[in-house]
Simulated assay, not measured.
Amino acid sequence: MSILVVIRGNSGSGKSTVASAVQRLFPRGRCLLVPQDIVRRHMLREYDTPSGGNVELIERIAGFGLERGLVVVVEGILSVGHYGGMLERLSGLAEFAFHYSFDLTFEETLVRHAGRKQAGEFGAVEMAGWYHGWQPLGFVDEVRIDVGWGVGDVVERIHRDVLGVSPWPS
């Protein structure tokens, strides 16, 4: 059984924290985490462009996991313009696909960013250039995560959704 979980949102919204917590809820070797930043910034050292190699590499890595029946968690800013087509193709490969997207104000992302270890690496000016507001995917209804959701709430919702279709015990 292949299960895709997509967690999108602006920089500083909490998606990486949520994705890591979700992965830890599943047995070792059953959940593949594919972080956009790791693939794009660390593996390829490239800028975020529509023709960037990271789009194809994310798709191939996630496809690998889906072919093997893993829970695959793809997380990142994943803007619609650059990644929408790839996310739609991945959703088509999965038996079950769950989509979650953070919808936070720029001010809220700055507050959340201030508590991150990356806070010293970049600030409000850089984040303003990356911020795109609410950008829904056109092919699926995403669970819209607003400021009222805590990390635990989001993790619990994703876990519950996946367990509802997975063969693993809770």
Rank of each mutant, 00 (worst) to 15 (best):
I3R: 04
I3P: 00
V5Y: 13
V6F: 09
V6C: 03
R8G: 11
G9F: 12
G9R: 06
G9I: 10
N10Y: 09
N10S: 15
N10T: 04
S11V: 10
S11F: 06
S16A: 06
V18D: 01
A21I: 08
A21R: 15
Q23S: 05
R24P: 00
L25S: 12
L25R: 15
L25K: 15
L25C: 13
L25P: 00
R28M: 13
R28E: 12
R28H: 10
G29R: 11
L32E: 00
L33V: 04
P35R: 13
Q36H: 13
Q36M: 11
D37L: 00
V39Q: 05
V39F: 03
Y47E: 10
D48C: 04
D48A: 15
T49P: 00
T49W: 10
P50Y: 15
G52Y: 02
G52R: 07
V55M: 07
E59A: 15
E59S: 13
R60W: 08
A62R: 05
A62Q: 02
A62V: 03
F64N: 06
F64A: 00
G69S: 03
G69R: 10
V72P: 00
V72S: 01
V73F: 04
V73P: 02
V74T: 06
E75P: 04
I77N: 01
I77S: 03
Y83F: 14
G84F: 14
M86F: 11
L87T: 09
L87C: 07
R89G: 03
S91G: 15
G92K: 14
A94V: 01
A94Q: 05
F96D: 08
A97L: 10
A97E: 07
F98Q: 01
F98V: 03
H99G: 01
Y100I: 05
S101H: 09
T109A: 01
T109V: 14
R116A: 00
Q118S: 10
Q118L: 05
A119W: 08
G120F: 13
E121L: 14
F122H: 05
A124L: 09
A124Y: 12
V125K: 13
V125R: 14
V125S: 03
G129T: 13
W130E: 03
H132T: 08
L137Y: 14
F139V: 01
D141S: 15
E142R: 10
E142C: 08
E142Y: 12
V143T: 14
R144H: 07
I145E: 00
V147N: 02
V147S: 11
W149H: 07
G150R: 13
G150W: 02
G152I: 11
D153V: 04
V155C: 02
V155Y: 04
R157Y: 00
I158E: 02
I158Q: 05
H159Q: 09
D161L: 11
V162H: 00
V162K: 05
P167W: 06
P169C: 11
S170H: 08
